[in-house]
Structures are given as structure tokens and as C-alpha cells.
Nucleic acid binder design. Structure first.
Length: 355
DNA sequence: AATACGTGGAC
DNA sequence: TGTCCAAGTAT
């Protein structure tokens, strides 16, 4: 069994993380057995497809701004999106806020303490439900994230490729899940995957579960888990129209509620063409006199490359009429920190030397 | 089942 | 520079 080897290792080597009650802390505070479910939930949502290093700062900021789920539930969505700006996968922030409202308004501010109950919450899928159940409530839930998949694939030498092999991985992981210390075990597995059983150059020689690891025995650890080949990313192109006023700043607007960068703030752009050169937008063109900046802003999203040619125009008249025409609002650069500006939009503003 | 959905760091 | 990858979820 993995647990017998990995729990003693975790007791010695657990990383100190802002959202984690370390084994040492647990011993020091025997009355506080498990972590605050709100903090576990907040950290787990942030950690979805996002590195620990990136999450730390955001987590501290959120916890300072909204110490409880009730505080978060009362906040305006736009302020949550602003605090989330730069972290990516913005549906997480929209679901985070929606979930906080559900917990505050319908569940008395208390998170469900079962996988089944947690799974019903917006933004909480199989991984996160299991993680909260295990870490916050010490329930013997089987936590399977990318780390656990890698550890299990190697431990059992599962050579079939992802994602097809996932059910088999889940089954193997389930076999290993202990009834005692399930929260520590889950975190130990993830720590092991993050620090020793890494994608490249795994540290098999110092691994606490090396003895029974079949992939290590066969010398194929680094090649597992196998993955289906990736598809090539297409390149989309557009023009960004940066209206600038000496008095009132830049003209920005809110993106549609759903989809890419949903609800976030943007510089107005033309269509994002899926093939060929960017196309000018006649309706935006005729609102001002445009200067095309040198170079192109490049940004890569999950499933496409993006190239933006930036146009700027100095506006001194009819500021409100233009704002109305683009369904936007003027914002001083001093106010940008309070806006929900995603990284790609900051790149555009930076390219125009405006931030 | 397959695709949409961000970003920054490592190599 | 390009590719891979990170504590996945929703549809």
C-alpha cells in the first residue's frame, strides 16, 4: 500500500502552503483538526490547472479581502473578476462567486461535507469535491488530479495513453485510498507528484514509494503517463482600437458574460478572424482617425495563437458619444488596477506604451 | 467524447 | 522561439 510509505514521508517533507494545515500545525493545535472548508475550496478552485507559485499571491489577496464565504457572496461580481484578473480561466471566478452565493444564501454559509453535496456546487467537479471532502473533512475520498494520475500511472506501469486510461487510473487510486488520514494522504500524493514524481526527470532514487513502483522497476517512469498527440493551434488575428483621451483615459468595455474572457474588460477589437490577415472594422474605423502601431501583440490561449495589430487615436471631442457607440466607458490609467483586465488586454495597452 | 477555456515558468 | 505543463470543469 502506498499510504504506509507516503504518510511518514509527508510528515517530514510536507510543503508549507498558505491554505494548508501542516502535520506540524495539526500537532500544535490538536483542537483544530482540519482546515477551514472555505479556504480549502478557495485554494482548490484557484489551483485548477494553475501552479502553486502563481496561486499564492491571489489566495492571500482573496482571503484578506473576503475572510469568509459570506463576505465573498456579498461582493459584486465585477470586483471578484478584478481581483481574479491575470489568473486565467475566468469561468472559475464567475463560478466562484456563484458558488459563494449558493453556500451563503442556501446552505447557511456552511460548505457540504460530502463529495455528493460538494459536487453540486458551481465550479466544483470530481477532483475538487474529493479534495475538499478529504482535506477539509478528512473523508476517505479518492482525489485524482494530474499529479495523482502520474504517480498512479507509474506505480502500476499503466502504459495506455490519456485520456482513455483515466477510468483505470481512478480504479487503482481508489484501491490505495486509506480510511485514516485521507486528507493528508491526498495532499501527500499531490506533493509527491509535484516535487519527486515529476513529468521530467523524476526523482525515483529518493522516492518514498520506489520499492513497489513498477515503472521504476522497468525503467520507464519518465515515459509515463502517455498522452494522445496534441492538435496544432490555429492563429487568429484582429485589430485593437485604442481610443485615448488626455482627460479621460482609454475607452474600455465589458466582454459578454460567457465564453472567452467572459465578463472581463477589453480594448475594443474587430472580429477575431480564424484564418488569414486581420480585418479592419468599418464601424470602429469611422469613429476616429487611426494610427497603426509598429509590430504586433502576440498571445497564446489554450487553443489558439492570437495576433493583435494595435490602432490608436487621440480623441478630444464627442467623448461620451463615442463611448456610447462602442458600448464602453472611459477609464484613467490610474483606475486600471481596479479593472478586470486580463493579461492579453494588458499586453495591448503595454504595446501602446499606455501602462 | 471532444472541445473550450488563460497564464507564466521551465526547458 | 516553441512546446509542455500546472491541485479541472462545463458543455
Amino acid at each position: 500500500m502506498i499510504a504506509e510509505e507516503i504518510l511518514p514521508w509527508y510528515d517530514k517533507h510536507a510543503r508549507e502552503l498558505p491554505w494548508r494545515l501542516s502535520p506540524r500545525q495539526k500537532r500544535a493545535n490538536p483542537n483544530v483538526l482540519y482546515a477551514d472548508p472555505y479556504r480549502v475550496w478557495l485554494s482548490e478552485i484557484m489551483l485548477q490547472q494553475t501552479t502553486v507559485a502563481t496561486v499564492k499571491g491571489y489566495y492571500e489577496k482573496f482571503l484578506a479581502s473576503w475572510p469568509t464565504v459570506n463576505d465573498l457572496a456579498k461582493e459584486d461580481l465585477d470586483n471578484v473578476l478584478s481581483a481574479w484578473a491575470g489568473l486565467g480561466y475566468y469561468a472559475r471566478a464567475r463560478n466562484l462567486h456563484k458558488c459563494a452565493k449558493v453556500v451563503a444564501d442556501e446552505l447557511g454559509g456552511v460548505f457540504p461535507d460530502t463529495e455528493e453535496g460538494l459536487l453540486k456546487l458551481p465550479g466544483v467537479g470530481p477532483y475538487t469535491a474529493a479534495a475538499i471532502a478529504a482535506i477539509a473533512y478528512d473523508r476517505p475520498a479518492t482525489v485524482v488530479d494530474g499529479n495523482v494520475e502520474r504517480v498512479i500511472a507509474r506505480y502500476y506501469a499503466l502504459e495506455d495513453p490519456l485520456p482513455g486510461v483515466k477510468p483505470q487510473m481512478k480504479e487503482c487510486a481508489q484501491q490505495q485510498t486509506p480510511y485514516e488520514r485521507a486528507g493528508d494522504y491526498a495532499q501527500a500524493m499531490m506533493d509527491l507528484g509535484a516535487t519527486i514524481c515529476t513529468p521530467r526527470s523524476p526523482g525515483c532514487v529518493i522516492c518514498p514509494i520506489q520499492t513497489a513502483c513498477l515503472a521504476r522497476k522497468s525503467g520507464i517512469a519518465e515515459s509515463l503517463p502517455k498522452k494522445a498527440p496534441k492538435k496544432e493551434k490555429p492563429t487568429r488575428r484582429t485589430y485593437a482600437y485604442l481610443f485615448l483621451s488626455d482627460e479621460r483615459g482609454a475607452l474600455l468595455r465589458r466582454r459578454p458574460e460567457k465564453g472567452l474572457l467572459g465578463g472581463m474588460t477589453e480594448v475594443p477589437t474587430g472580429d477575431w478572424v480564424k484564418q488569414g490577415d486581420a480585418v479592419r472594422n468599418p464601424e470602429l474605423d469611422h469613429l476616429a482617425q487611426w494610427t497603426e502601431l509598429e509590430g504586433v501583440v502576440k498571445h497564446t490561449f489554450t487553443h489558439f495563437h492570437f495576433e493583435i495589430t494595435v490602432l490608436t487615436s487621440k480623441i478630444s471631442q464627442n467623448l461620451d458619444g463615442i463611448a456610447e457607440a462602442v458600448q464602453g466607458a472611459w477609464a484613467h490609467k490610474t483606475e486600471f488596477s481596479g479593472l478586470a483586465l486580463p493579461t492579453v488586454m494588458k499586453k495591448i495597452l503595454r504595446h501602446a506604451d499606455y501602462i
